[in-house]
Design a protein around this nucleic acid. Structure first.
Lengths: 202, 202
DNA sequence: ATAAAATTGGCACACCCGTACCAATTTTCC
DNA sequence: GGAAAATTGGTACGGGTGTGCCAATTTTAT
């Protein structure tokens, strides 16, 4: 493949590409800056906007820093996705414990729409990329767990799953289509109510 | 904007870009071929794969045909999305009238996964593009209507909306995350049952 | 201090992109 | 027939992309 391949055993490491964690403190800071810039760009313009050059410029770092700290653009995107998911999960959990389940549509309305779009964009993209797929599953599992904790039910309970799906669909629909909010709120309260009244799973 | 702009009134039409419907039969066929090629590519590789060159090559037509029949790449994507949505709606409706609501997960499992991914990819992308947003709303409305017709209920009925959201979320989750199918099927039947037992909306 | 390793930053290659341009050809209309 | 309009297909421009390369510099380890 590579026509100028040196004997690989002579240089045990390529002396480049310091994997995930640079050895020096400044390097670790730089890497984090790049990642934050990638997340920003992802939320602003979708993942087409996350290019090496754009990330470097946003982070006030030279272009080559991006290829030095991240093996490829795909890896950069994957880490940005993971970070976004983690942040989203903690935000959502905090909101629900503060305001209750049925107030979730208001949190969605409050939150940065572009951010949500970037998140969902990457979620769908995960369908074509096994690495991202794992992160997507983590997101789903995290949301289900939040619902389960809130309702004091096990994660496997059908009612939990039912509420979660309703939540998800309403969320996505609102972010993409920007329908009036009251519909979503009404539907969600109705869903929670009927789920509470429903029999325990068979 | 354009430095070499002729007086626009002398040439009432640019002599290029025949809007949506070419005057000649062969042209209309060619346009349809290009559109079909775009849909194909969209399903295969996401909308990043829908480039002028790729579409032209897939349709066995010269590159310039794509710019002749479509004003821009955005328009091409919009029409491909609309076509995909229309096809999906008729397919789904047929499946449900044949096999019933709760068999929908099996239809999803049967159908071409890449196609579904392309559809959802464009759906999320519609959040950033007003033109696509209209098409996205059409899709949602179409799905809601199918559910309403199947249950012999008005579209505005809360139970219809509830089933629709459950359906949507399960569908997306399955397409992206490829979880085992039985969960989705069980959850859906449970949702339909509780919705049927629920009181009519207040 | 000195060698080795890690990091930096600038540059360039090869490729793909949307779209404009335009001379030739075909079709339509009178 | 012939003029006007529609279509065709080839080409080129300007720009953005991921990534490889490498000489300089800084940090670390001995």
């Amino acid at each position: 493949m590579n026509p100028h391949q040196d004997t690989p055993k002579d240089r045990p490491r390529p002396a480049h590409t310091p994997a995930a964690s640079p050895a020096q403190a400044r390097g670790r800071r730089r890497r984090a800056t790049l990642l934050a810039a990638a997340v920003d760009l992802l939320t602003e313009g979708g993942f087409a906007a996350v290019t090496h050059r754009a990330v470097a410029q946003r982070a006030n770092l030279p272009l080559s820093a991006t290829t030095y700290y991240f093996a490829s653009r795909d890896q950069l995107l994957a880490e940005a996705f993971a970070q976004l998911v983690e942040a989203e999960l903690t935000t959502t959990r905090a909101w629900i414990t503060d305001h209750g389940l049925t107030a979730l549509p208001d949190q969605v309305a409050t939150a940065d729409r572009a951010r949500q779009l970037g998140l969902w964009e990457l979620y769908v993209h995960a369908g074509r990329d096994p690495v991202l797929q794992h992160i997507a599953r983590r997101w789903t599992d995290g949301c289900v767990r939040i619902v389960a904790d809130t309702l004091h039910l096990p994660e496997t309970d059908t009612r939990v799953r039912l509420i979660y799906t309703t939540l998800t669909a309403l969320w996505l629909e609102h972010v993409v289509e920007q329908r009036p909010l009251h519909q979503a709120r009404d539907l969600l309260t109705h869903a929670v109510k009927t789920a509470e009244n429903a029999l325990p799973p068979p």
